[in-house]
Simulated assay, not measured.
Amino acid sequence: MATLEASVSPPVRPSTHVGTSTDGHAGDGESTWTIAQAAQATGVSVHTLRYYERAGLMREPVARAASSHRRYTASDIAWVSFLTRLRLTGMPIREMARYARLARAGAGTETDRLALLTEHRRRVLDRLHEEQRNLAAIDHKIAHYERILR
Protein backbone atom coordinates (compact mmCIF):
# COMPACT_ATOMS: atom_id res chain seq x y z
CA MET A 1 0.00 0.00 0.00
CA ALA A 2 2.91 2.37 0.54
CA THR A 3 3.49 2.36 -3.22
CA LEU A 4 -0.08 3.48 -3.82
CA GLU A 5 0.19 6.27 -1.26
CA ALA A 6 3.41 7.51 -2.82
CA SER A 7 1.82 7.55 -6.27
CA VAL A 8 -1.24 9.62 -5.39
CA SER A 9 -1.07 13.15 -6.74
CA PRO A 10 -4.37 14.93 -6.26
CA PRO A 11 -5.45 16.99 -9.29
CA VAL A 12 -6.54 19.87 -7.10
CA ARG A 13 -4.30 22.28 -5.31
CA PRO A 14 -4.33 21.93 -1.53
CA SER A 15 -4.43 24.87 0.80
CA THR A 16 -1.90 25.35 3.55
CA HIS A 17 -3.31 24.66 6.96
CA VAL A 18 -1.99 27.03 9.61
CA GLY A 19 -2.41 25.88 13.16
CA THR A 20 -3.43 22.50 14.44
CA SER A 21 -6.72 20.69 14.56
CA THR A 22 -8.29 19.63 17.82
CA ASP A 23 -6.70 16.20 17.45
CA GLY A 24 -3.34 17.47 16.21
CA HIS A 25 -3.69 15.53 12.94
CA ALA A 26 -2.67 18.33 10.57
CA GLY A 27 0.25 20.42 11.71
CA ASP A 28 1.50 23.89 10.87
CA GLY A 29 2.11 24.41 7.18
CA GLU A 30 0.93 20.94 6.14
CA SER A 31 -0.98 20.94 2.86
CA THR A 32 -4.60 19.99 3.37
CA TRP A 33 -7.73 19.77 1.25
CA THR A 34 -11.29 20.81 2.00
CA ILE A 35 -13.92 18.11 1.72
CA ALA A 36 -14.90 19.41 -1.74
CA GLN A 37 -11.27 19.36 -2.88
CA ALA A 38 -10.81 15.87 -1.40
CA ALA A 39 -13.92 14.68 -3.24
CA GLN A 40 -12.54 16.05 -6.50
CA ALA A 41 -9.08 14.59 -5.86
CA THR A 42 -10.41 11.12 -5.05
CA GLY A 43 -13.31 10.99 -7.50
CA VAL A 44 -15.87 10.22 -4.80
CA SER A 45 -18.69 12.42 -3.60
CA VAL A 46 -18.67 14.57 -0.49
CA HIS A 47 -21.45 12.27 0.78
CA THR A 48 -19.17 9.23 0.30
CA LEU A 49 -16.32 10.90 2.20
CA ARG A 50 -18.63 11.62 5.12
CA TYR A 51 -19.99 8.06 4.96
CA TYR A 52 -16.48 6.57 4.99
CA GLU A 53 -15.75 8.58 8.12
CA ARG A 54 -19.01 7.58 9.88
CA ALA A 55 -18.57 3.92 8.89
CA GLY A 56 -15.12 3.79 10.48
CA LEU A 57 -13.34 3.30 7.17
CA MET A 58 -10.75 6.02 7.66
CA ARG A 59 -7.35 4.89 8.90
CA GLU A 60 -7.13 7.88 11.23
CA PRO A 61 -9.50 10.69 12.19
CA VAL A 62 -9.90 13.42 9.59
CA ALA A 63 -8.47 16.68 10.92
CA ARG A 64 -10.68 19.66 11.60
CA ALA A 65 -9.85 23.31 11.08
CA ALA A 66 -10.62 25.81 13.82
CA SER A 67 -13.92 26.39 11.97
CA SER A 68 -14.65 22.62 12.46
CA HIS A 69 -14.51 21.99 8.70
CA ARG A 70 -12.80 18.78 7.65
CA ARG A 71 -9.22 19.09 6.40
CA TYR A 72 -7.85 16.12 4.44
CA THR A 73 -4.12 15.42 4.28
CA ALA A 74 -2.25 13.75 1.44
CA SER A 75 -2.31 10.56 3.51
CA ASP A 76 -6.11 10.80 3.83
CA ILE A 77 -6.42 11.31 0.05
CA ALA A 78 -4.23 8.26 -0.61
CA TRP A 79 -6.24 6.18 1.87
CA VAL A 80 -9.59 7.15 0.31
CA SER A 81 -8.16 6.38 -3.14
CA PHE A 82 -7.19 2.90 -1.90
CA LEU A 83 -10.62 2.37 -0.32
CA THR A 84 -12.18 3.37 -3.63
CA ARG A 85 -10.12 0.73 -5.43
CA LEU A 86 -11.18 -1.89 -2.90
CA ARG A 87 -14.83 -0.91 -3.36
CA LEU A 88 -14.61 -0.81 -7.17
CA THR A 89 -13.17 -4.32 -7.12
CA GLY A 90 -16.11 -5.56 -5.09
CA MET A 91 -14.84 -5.62 -1.54
CA PRO A 92 -17.82 -5.44 0.83
CA ILE A 93 -17.96 -2.48 3.23
CA ARG A 94 -17.70 -4.82 6.23
CA GLU A 95 -14.34 -6.13 4.92
CA MET A 96 -13.16 -2.61 4.19
CA ALA A 97 -14.06 -1.69 7.78
CA ARG A 98 -12.15 -4.70 9.07
CA TYR A 99 -9.13 -3.70 6.99
CA ALA A 100 -9.36 -0.13 8.36
CA ARG A 101 -9.57 -1.42 11.95
CA LEU A 102 -6.49 -3.56 11.37
CA ALA A 103 -4.61 -0.64 9.80
CA ARG A 104 -5.52 1.59 12.77
CA ALA A 105 -4.28 -1.09 15.14
CA GLY A 106 -0.88 -0.84 13.43
CA ALA A 107 2.06 -3.16 13.85
CA GLY A 108 1.25 -6.77 14.57
CA THR A 109 -1.76 -6.86 12.23
CA GLU A 110 0.18 -7.24 8.99
CA THR A 111 -0.55 -10.97 8.72
CA ASP A 112 -4.29 -10.38 9.02
CA ARG A 113 -4.19 -7.47 6.54
CA LEU A 114 -2.21 -9.59 4.08
CA ALA A 115 -4.71 -12.46 4.41
CA LEU A 116 -7.65 -10.14 3.86
CA LEU A 117 -6.11 -8.55 0.77
CA THR A 118 -4.90 -11.89 -0.60
CA GLU A 119 -8.40 -13.37 -0.36
CA HIS A 120 -9.89 -10.28 -2.00
CA ARG A 121 -7.30 -10.51 -4.79
CA ARG A 122 -8.29 -14.14 -5.38
CA ARG A 123 -11.95 -13.14 -5.74
CA VAL A 124 -11.04 -10.29 -8.11
CA LEU A 125 -8.97 -12.67 -10.26
CA ASP A 126 -11.84 -15.17 -10.35
CA ARG A 127 -14.18 -12.44 -11.62
CA LEU A 128 -11.57 -11.23 -14.09
CA HIS A 129 -11.15 -14.73 -15.53
CA GLU A 130 -14.93 -15.05 -15.85
CA GLU A 131 -15.05 -11.69 -17.67
CA GLN A 132 -12.27 -12.87 -20.01
CA ARG A 133 -14.30 -15.99 -20.85
CA ASN A 134 -17.36 -13.82 -21.49
CA LEU A 135 -15.34 -11.48 -23.70
CA ALA A 136 -13.99 -14.44 -25.67
CA ALA A 137 -17.56 -15.61 -26.34
CA ILE A 138 -18.51 -12.11 -27.52
CA ASP A 139 -15.41 -11.91 -29.74
CA HIS A 140 -16.30 -15.31 -31.23
CA LYS A 141 -19.80 -14.09 -32.09
CA ILE A 142 -18.45 -10.82 -33.58
CA ALA A 143 -16.03 -12.80 -35.76
CA HIS A 144 -18.95 -14.98 -36.89
CA TYR A 145 -20.99 -11.95 -38.03
CA GLU A 146 -17.99 -10.31 -39.67
CA ARG A 147 -17.45 -13.49 -41.75
CA ILE A 148 -21.11 -13.51 -42.78
CA LEU A 149 -21.10 -9.84 -43.78
CA ARG A 150 -17.96 -9.96 -45.93
Score class of each variant (00 low, 15 high):
R122E: 11
I93P: 06
S81K: 05
H47P: 00
A55Y: 11
V8C: 04
M58W: 11
I35M: 09
L88V: 09
R87Y: 00
T118K: 01
E53L: 06
F82D: 02
M1P: 05
T22Y: 12
R133D: 14
H69Q: 15
R133F: 08
R147S: 15
R104K: 12
A137L: 10
R54S: 14
T73N: 02
G90Y: 07
H120P: 04
H69G: 11
T32F: 01
H144Y: 15
T109L: 01
D139R: 13
Y145G: 08
T89A: 04
A103T: 06
A78D: 06
M96E: 00
A136H: 12
S45C: 12
S15W: 09
T34E: 02
S21K: 07
D28K: 12
S21I: 09
M58C: 13
E53F: 05
E30Q: 13
Y51A: 13
E119M: 02
A74V: 03
S68V: 11
I138P: 01
E60N: 08
H129T: 13
Q37N: 14
R98I: 01
E60M: 09
H140K: 11
T20S: 10
A143R: 14
S67T: 15
S15A: 13
A66Y: 09
Y51G: 08
R127N: 15
R13H: 11
L114W: 03
A2L: 01
H47Q: 12
E119C: 03
E131T: 14
G19T: 00
R71W: 08
R147G: 14
